[in-house]
Design a protein around this nucleic acid. Sequence first.
DNA 1: CGTGTGTTTGATGAATTTCAAAGCAGGTGG
DNA 2: CCACCTGCTTTGAAATTCATCAAACACACG
Lengths: 248, 248
Amino acid sequence: MSYTGLYQSQHLRTACSNCSVSELCLPFGLTGPEIQQLDKLIVQRFKVKKNLALYRTGDPLRSLYAVRIGSFKTNVISVNGREQVTGFQMPGELLGLDAISTEIHGCNAFALEDSEVCPIHFAHLEKLAGELPSLQHNLNKILSREIVRDHDMLMTLGNMNSEERLAAFLLNLSQRLSMRGYSPTHFLLKMRREEIGSYLGLRLETICRSIAHLRDRGLVEISGRDVEIHNLKGLNQLVAGCHRLRLG
Amino acid sequence: MSYTGLYQSQHLRTACSNCSVSELCLPFGLTGPEIQQLDKLIVQRFKVKKNLALYRTGDPLRSLYAVRIGSFKTNVISVNGREQVTGFQMPGELLGLDAISTEIHGCNAFALEDSEVCPIHFAHLEKLAGELPSLQHNLNKILSREIVRDHDMLMTLGNMNSEERLAAFLLNLSQRLSMRGYSPTHFLLKMRREEIGSYLGLRLETICRSIAHLRDRGLVEISGRDVEIHNLKGLNQLVAGCHRLRLG
DNA sequence: CGTGTGTTTGATGAATTTCAAAGCAGGTGG
DNA sequence: CCACCTGCTTTGAAATTCATCAAACACACG
C-alpha cells in the first residue's frame, strides 16, 4: 500500500490529497482576481524525497515554501548535538517564515515522507505585496499567526504534564487535518516518537507511556503510526483547563 | 531611591534612561529622511502605572506599542487560572505583534514598573508601509525575528534543566541591556521570581534554588532583585552546549 | 511597629529521565 | 518466499529532577 495522502491512508481519504495553486493561496487570504497575481509567483513545484532537507540552517533565504503534498518537520540542532523540533508542517502550510529576519534560514526543514512543495520567491513576494495592500496585510497576519502558535506552544510546555501535552498535540493535528477535509479521528503520524518527544519537550519513552495512558483511559487507540481517536470530547476536556482563557 | 531607569539603578546608569523617537524607529531599521515619515506615527506617548494593564486579552488591536521607559510582561491566563508569561519587554522593544493575526490582543501586557509607551496606530503603520518598501520590509523582519526568538525559547524549555534555563535567561537580559548601553553585568530585575518561573516553565522555588546554585558556583551574586554577574564566560559555557549550532 | 507581599530554605513525594532489554515491522538479499 | 537486518517502539526498574507543602525570613509601607 502506498500513500499519496498525508497523515491519512488512501482508503480513508475524504478530500484532495494535494493542494492546487489556488488552495496554496488560501493562507494569503486572497480571493478573486488577486489570486492570479499570486499565481505568477507560484509557478514551480518540486519534489523532496523522504528524509532529505528542503533547506538547512545557514542557507540563504531565497524562497518561502508552500507544502503541496506530504509533510515536513523543522528543527534546530544544538552544539551538543541535541535536536529540537520546532514544528510540523502539512499541506497548505508555509515553511521558512523565520528566515525573513536574517535572510538566512535559522532551522532545517526535512521531508517526513516523499513530498512536493511550491517555492515562493521571497523578493518577488515582497515586491508584489508592495503593489497589493491586501497581500501585504495578509503576509503580516501569517507572520503574526505564527507568533500566536508559538505562544500556545510555550503554554503547552510551561503548564502541561506529559499526558496533556500529547493530548494537545493529537488534537492540534486532528484540527488541522479536519480543516483540510480529512477525518479528524483517524490519521497516520508521519513522525517518529522521538520527534514528537522533542517537539513536546519529552523523551521518546515518555511519549510511549503517555500513549499507553490515553489508551487505558479509552480516549484513543494508537498502534504504531496509526491513530484512532475514540473520544474527541474527552481529549478536549483533558487539556481544557490548560487552554487560553478567551475574554471579550 | 526611585528608578527612572529600567533594569538598572540610577547610580549605575551609563546610558539614556529612556528612548527618543528616533531610537524607537531603530527596530524598524529606518535611517535618514524615512524616519521623519515614521515620526508622524509616533506622536503620542502615555504613562502606564506599575501593575496596570497596557492592554488585555480580547481588546481590539488599535496600536502596537514601543516601550519608551520602564518594562512590561506579557502573559496568557488559562481557564484553570494559571499564568503563562510569554515575554518581558524593555525600552526600545515592541508590544502587540501577536495581535496582528486576529486584530484582537491574544495576551495581556502589564507594566512591571511605572512606564511610558508610544502607541503606533497599526492601520496607519500599514498604510505608511505600503508607501515605504523599506518600512514594510523591516516590519516583516520584526515579525520574523519574534518567531526566531520564540523558537529559541522552545529550545530552552525543551532541552535545558532549571539551572541552564536561568543562566540563559540572565544572559538574554544581559545582552539586551548591553545593546542599549547599560552594564551587561549589573542590573535590576523588575519581575518577581514567580514571573521568571512562569516564563521558564519552572516553579518560583526552583528559581530560588537555581539562583543559589549559580551563586555557589561563583557565577553570579543575586540578592533580591539586584543581579551582579561575576563570570559572564562561565555562564555562557553553562548553556553553550544547548545553543543553536550555526552553520554556513 | 505591625502587616502584607515577596523570597529563601527544608523535607517529602511525584513525575520524568535514564538505562536496559525485548519486541515488531519494513526492507533487502539470498 | 523466507531470513535477516536495521530502525523504531514498547515496557520495566532505578535514578534524578522538579513540584509541592510548610515554615521562616526580609523588606517596604502605611
